[in-house]
Design a protein around this nucleic acid. Structure first.
Lengths: 221, 221
DNA sequence: ATTCTTGATATAATCGATTTTTAATAATAG
DNA sequence: CTATTATTAAAAATCGATTATATCAAGAAT
């Protein structure tokens, strides 16, 4: 999950916008990314568009095959499972490191993040799905806060990319998984406060796998 | 570790060459990557160079900051430890999946890869350091073969990138760690044949951490 | 002597044009 | 009618020029 800050070059702005639009579904899996269309849509020249697309290629959101242009990366059920597996692996590891190092500031941070998320979840549960993107930002905020004390910038960066790949699948469903998901978030918060890593990891695994099954039940990938 | 195959666009060729030169040290950490110099050195126009550099930015081999151009990513002792930690995490996980799924073909593959590597290690041990790059390619070949049956393309791709980041540090030392490293490779091969994942993971951890300490002993990062 | 301001130079970022390649369509042969 | 080849149009990749920004050096002010 990228948070935009400060002044950006045109190229960076195009990169962030394209990335956002792929993750949140405005650009669909396997869509051909025609340079002339993108030029108009993102208000930059073709060469600048290509720079942004090249960044997205190594990140895995765009695929290219010499001379045939760029395509939004495809999606599939098996890939979702692989990404979820990686997310579990990285996030469980980061949780352990974070629980070991986390201090009072970190506790306050995750309480605040959870508060925002649970407010959003209440709204989703009451039937208001109008701010789906905000909901997912708070979801990210909570998970990121949980692992923020892990002490490894490389791990956090990598986790962020994997999280976004997982999020792309999540954004395809129109529904909230319900009280089960909210309960899992609450459990994660409580185990964090208690520094109970074994139970936290177990809940996280259930949580992510629940999201996978929910996605796969909604569409045939 | 990227293996070059088939026809490439100029842009792809520049990307591979730059990537190679960063990993193998021809372009030093924190070097300013001046576009006019690269234009001559890599025989492509500035815009094409920029495309390749953008790919390397999201991959972490190059850093950029708004109007100031591109730099080879810096190195540091803490970062090496983080990368090693990630390599251990990913490779141990992939080993487990591979041991569960590996068949006779996979066994033959790792035996062949180990043979090549041990031949190279014999040469290093006899004092011949002339083919350091080949040695590292065989090292990669062996580790990659060990995890090749893990069944996750995402995991293999990710592991490959992390391996290359780790390799960049390894290439800075001029020396072979010695019989200890060779023995660890042999142990990995034997545990793979026996599908002994616990011992294999333990040896792998020792192996990678040995490489980290060897690197840190050689230079003050 | 130090700091700030201004202008010149170097360089990065972006642009649009040109070249190269691919894809689509039409013509021809079997 | 189908398959192959040739032609044309569309699009991708690369190029070099232009615009925008950073850096550096010199002069002025304190």
């Amino acid at each position: 999950m990228h948070i935009v800050s400060g002044e950006m070059t045109v190229g960076e702005g195009v990169y962030e916008a394209l990335r956002h639009d792929i993750i949140f579904g405005q650009l669909s899996p396997s869509d051909k990314l025609k340079l002339d269309n993108l030029k108009s849509a993102y208000n930059a020249s073709v060469a600048t568009i290509r720079e942004a697309l090249n960044r997205l290629v190594t990140e895995g959101f765009v695929v290219t095959e010499g001379q045939r242009g760029f395509f939004v990366a495809p999606i599939s059920g098996p890939e979702l499972r692989e990404i979820a597996d990686l997310r579990i692996l990285l996030e469980c590891h980061a949780l352990r490191l974070s629980f070991e190092a986390g201090d009072t500031e970190w506790e306050a941070e995750i309480i605040a993040a959870h508060h925002k998320l649970s407010r959003m979840e209440q709204r989703m549960q009451s039937g208001d799905h109008s701010e789906k993107e905000t909901w997912k930002r708070y979801d990210w905020g909570f998970h990121q806060a949980l692992i923020s004390a892990c002490g490894s910038r490389e791990l956090l960066t990598l986790h962020g990319t994997i999280f976004d790949k997982y999020l792309r699948y999540q954004m395809r469903t129109l529904t909230f998984r319900g009280e089960a998901a909210a309960a899992e978030h609450r459990a994660l918060l409580n185990y964090a406060m208690e520094r109970d890593i074994e139970n936290a990891q177990a809940v996280l695994r259930v949580h992510i796998e629940g999201g996978v099954e929910h996605s796969l039940a909604q569409e045939n990938l």
